[in-house]
Simulated assay, not measured.
Amino acid sequence: MTATVPETGNDRHDTAERLLRSSAELSFDPTTQVDWETPLDRDYHGMSPEWSSLYGTRYWEEMTEEQRKELTRHESASVASTGIWFEMILQQLVLRDFYAKDPTDPAFQWALTEIADECRHSIMFARGSAKLGAPAYIPKKRVVALGRVCAAVYSGEAAYASILVAEEVLDVMQRDWMRDERVVPFVRTINNIHVVEESRHMKFAREETRERLQGAGKVRRQVQALFVAMAAYEIVTAMWNEDLYANAGLDRERALREAKGNEHHKALLRSSCAGLMEFLSSCGLLTKPALYFYRRANLI
């Protein structure tokens, strides 16, 4: 598979300046722009029902509409909790990368702007999950431990491509949710804020990935591709916490079994990652070992 990573020259500098201008012109304050005061309306879903891990299964068909809405509220909170977990890793990766670098560089200033965005997003997701009536869906201890390792050792293209994977997967599903009038209004607002601001983060992550890969040899690409794929697997599989089914009042074991075999959900994940996989391929990061993890996570 041939990598086509272009020379960037001053592109990185120009991109950072554009992102800083965009941030100044269009950013949000979730503390005032999300409706936190109106009580939760349980007539709404927490996410587009088609994105539910049980949508299209026999279990879904047996559930009442109230049960489906309760389930999607817990699923939405679970995805948000995973988002918080990864955003905290992201902040550590970016801080380590720009530690003691030139603060007059627009890329340095953009990195701090992105970290500030992520702090607001994490608080927004936390408040949103609480309003949905869900508990904290923290990933498994093993995954949390792996996240600590990732935050401590990932660097360069492995760090930025992993950031991109997490952001791209969330972006696609949240674009659906924010337009869906079946979804509770405050969640739609949260998703809209995240989509708008994360579009800048994804642009930066793509540019940084290309920049760091310039001159990289085959062995380095093979190793980094594997690191990114392993991170992608852990991120995506953590999004639907196993405890959410019982908390939504369902039979946990049956729900887990049917969710695991849900071809509709797998197809939705695969289709949402088409653009991401094309980008990784263009960078030489879609190797055979990496494909193993993407397939296991139903991303390809």
Rank of each mutant, 00 (worst) to 15 (best):
M1P: 02
T8G: 02
R12N: 03
D14E: 11
T15K: 09
A16W: 02
A16F: 04
L19N: 03
E25R: 13
E25H: 13
D29T: 06
T31H: 09
P39K: 12
L40H: 14
M47T: 06
S48H: 03
W51C: 00
Y55P: 01
E61M: 00
E62W: 01
K69L: 00
E70I: 00
R73Y: 11
R73F: 05
E75S: 04
A77Q: 11
G83W: 06
W85G: 12
Q91S: 12
Q92N: 12
Q92C: 06
L93H: 04
D97C: 06
T104C: 07
P106V: 02
Q109D: 04
E118S: 09
C119G: 07
R120N: 06
I123R: 13
A130N: 14
K131H: 14
Y137R: 12
I138K: 15
V144E: 15
L146H: 13
G147M: 06
C150G: 08
C150W: 00
S155N: 05
A161L: 08
L164K: 09
E168I: 04
L170M: 12
V183N: 14
V184M: 11
V187Y: 12
R188W: 11
V195I: 10
R200N: 10
E211C: 12
Q214K: 10
A216T: 05
R220A: 13
R221M: 09
A225N: 14
F227C: 12
A229R: 14
I235H: 05
I235T: 11
T237F: 00
N241T: 06
A246W: 11
N247F: 07
L250T: 01
L250N: 01
E253W: 07
E258N: 06
K260N: 02
N262H: 04
H264C: 08
H265K: 15
H265T: 07
H265D: 10
L269Y: 02
R270F: 00
S271V: 03
S272E: 04
M277Q: 14
S281N: 13
L285W: 06
L285Q: 13
L291I: 03
L291K: 15
F293W: 10
F293R: 13
A297F: 01
I300S: 07
